[in-house]
Amino acid sequence: MKELFPLKQVMGFVFSLILTAVALLVYFTDMSFSVGMTVLLLTAFIQAGLQLVVFMHAGETNDKKSIYTNIYYGLLIALITIFGTLLTLIWDM
């Protein structure tokens, strides 16, 4: 039975639950907008990184470089798209 629950993955799961709990603080306590957003950004991105490395085995073959480049590239363009859109349509309109 034990071999079915590798420590790394169990720890990963526990950690993701903790991160969720921390994110929930935003709801249950009184935070300013900027503190709240910081907490959310941190927990969400750490959580995403966790899934990528622990569960998705992104780095286990020699395609590692392609895979990470692809994901980081996508992330960069995603952020540019989101913030560029907000800049154009909301913040600077």
């Binding site: 960069l76 363009i77 540019i80 560029g84 800049l87 154009t88 349509l89 600077d92 309109m93």
Partner: peptide, 23 residues
């Protein structure tokens, strides 16, 4: 990479501010 950084040049006249247009 840059091709994803320039799109607003197609609507400079839409009404966004000078900052955005300059970027």
């Amino acid at each position: 990479l840059l091709s994803f950084f320039v799109w607003a040049h197609h609507f400079f006249t839409m009404g966004q501010g000078a900052l955005t247009n300059s970027i």
